[in-house]
Simulated scan of single mutants.
Amino acid sequence: MKNLIQDGTTITLAPTVAVVSGTPVLIGAMLAVALANVPANTPGTFIPEGVFELAKAQADDIGQGDQVYWDAAAKVITTTATDNTPAGKAWAAAGNGALSVEVKINV
């Protein structure tokens, strides 16, 4: 096929700050997770699909399948839509007090 660019399982980004492997970042309105450590202003590989264990707002009670959002200021997954970016769906429940949640991103 002449118009296929790539399979879409990774995306290249040169972040303005250093990003540690496994850390999510917003690329526009899309959440992607760093495949490896990426120095500031250097192109690196990010994954925009899949299920990842991500930090969550500790007080949130997230049910399996719930819509979740990325709070870019706090750098956590939350159930609060206001001022946050849709991140995907909770793959597993994570109750109040849990520090992380499994999220299928960008669905």
Score class of each variant (00 low, 15 high):
3 N>E: 12
2 K>W: 05
80 T>Y: 09
42 T>E: 08
63 G>L: 06
75 K>S: 11
66 D>H: 07
47 I>Y: 03
8 G>M: 06
4 L>R: 15
54 L>P: 05
106 N>S: 10
103 V>H: 03
100 S>A: 14
32 A>H: 03
99 L>G: 13
9 T>N: 11
68 V>I: 04
93 A>M: 06
47 I>P: 01
42 T>Y: 02
97 G>Y: 11
84 N>L: 10
3 N>D: 15
107 V>R: 11
95 G>Y: 04
38 V>L: 11
84 N>V: 06
16 T>Q: 11
78 T>A: 12
60 D>W: 06
23 T>F: 07
43 P>R: 08
4 L>M: 13
57 A>G: 04
20 V>E: 10
99 L>P: 00
20 V>N: 12
10 T>E: 08
36 A>K: 14
57 A>P: 01
32 A>T: 06
78 T>I: 10
27 I>T: 02
105 I>F: 06
31 L>N: 00
92 A>Y: 03
42 T>K: 05
79 T>A: 14
96 N>M: 11
53 E>A: 13
84 N>S: 09
48 P>G: 11
107 V>L: 12
24 P>G: 01
50 G>Q: 06
13 L>G: 00
18 A>S: 14
84 N>D: 12
38 V>I: 12
4 L>E: 09
92 A>C: 01
40 A>Q: 06
83 D>H: 13
5 I>G: 03
62 I>S: 09
63 G>C: 03
60 D>H: 08
15 P>L: 00
42 T>V: 07
28 G>C: 00
27 I>W: 03
40 A>F: 07
79 T>N: 14
6 Q>P: 02
72 A>T: 07
68 V>L: 00
69 Y>I: 13
96 N>T: 15
62 I>M: 10
91 W>S: 09
94 A>S: 15
7 D>V: 01
97 G>I: 12
88 G>I: 10
23 T>Y: 06
97 G>W: 10
75 K>W: 00
18 A>M: 07
103 V>T: 01
106 N>M: 07
76 V>L: 11
2 K>C: 12
99 L>R: 04
85 T>Q: 11
88 G>Q: 02
62 I>W: 10
51 V>G: 03
55 A>P: 01
4 L>C: 08
11 I>G: 02
86 P>N: 09
38 V>K: 00
52 F>I: 00
16 T>N: 13
89 K>V: 13
45 T>G: 04
25 V>I: 13
15 P>G: 09
30 M>F: 03
58 Q>M: 14
28 G>N: 04
25 V>Y: 05
82 T>C: 07
21 S>H: 07
15 P>W: 08
20 V>L: 14
4 L>I: 15
82 T>K: 13
1 M>Q: 05
3 N>I: 14
20 V>I: 15
38 V>G: 09
9 T>K: 14
82 T>V: 14
25 V>F: 04
92 A>I: 02
87 A>D: 08
38 V>P: 09
41 N>T: 04
23 T>E: 05
84 N>I: 01
62 I>V: 09
95 G>R: 04
62 I>Q: 11
37 N>L: 07
52 F>N: 01
76 V>E: 04
20 V>T: 15
16 T>L: 13
46 F>Q: 05
98 A>E: 15
4 L>P: 00
7 D>Q: 12
11 I>E: 03
71 D>H: 03
30 M>H: 06
56 K>I: 09
4 L>H: 14
11 I>Q: 04
9 T>A: 07
